[in-house]
């Protein structure tokens, strides 16, 4: 498990990035993050949903309900145009931060930016 503070800080960037891939519902997001991080990040539902609702309040994501075969309808979240802009901005912030750490720790530890 990663430290709590890091998990909290990365919550929004990761969430926006995931929703940039495709529309997802809350449980799906938690599962995806868990596999992606190889179990290093687990989001409790009680934390996840308020963050999603906050993003929605600020217009970065939109939500819609979709019927499901396995049970009641699920609430899906989708990245809005405004959300995409926010994602670009936050991506740049994190890369900047990464650059600083790379400079400090030497080139060996570089996370080699992919874009």
């Amino acid at each position: 498990m990663l430290p709590k503070a890091l998990i909290a800080a990365s919550l929004k960037p990761i969430m926006l990035s995931l929703l940039a891939e495709r529309d997802m519902y809350g449980y799906e997001i938690t599962q995806r993050v868990q596999t992606l991080s190889e179990g290093k990040i687990r989001w409790a539902a009680s934390k996840l949903y308020p963050v999603l609702h906050d993003l929605e309040n600020r217009g970065l994501v939109a939500s819609f309900w979709q019927p499901s075969e396995s049970g009641p309808a699920r609430k899906y979240y989708r990245l809005t145009v405004k959300g995409q802009g926010a994602l670009e901005k936050t991506k740049q912030d994190w890369l900047d931060l990464n650059q600083i750490l790379v400079k400090l720790w030497g080139p060996d530890l570089s996370l080699a930016p992919s874009m």
Binding site: A45, S46, Y49, P50, H53, D54, E56, N57
Partner: peptide
């Protein structure tokens, strides 16, 4: 248990409650 207790969730939900209503 994984989802968390109602009172813990309440504290987090309360932060976004009024925003939700105004939306």
């Amino acid at each position: 248990r994984a989802l968390g207790a109602s009172w813990e969730a309440e504290a987090e939900y309360r932060k976004v409650y009024w925003g939700k209503l105004s939306r």
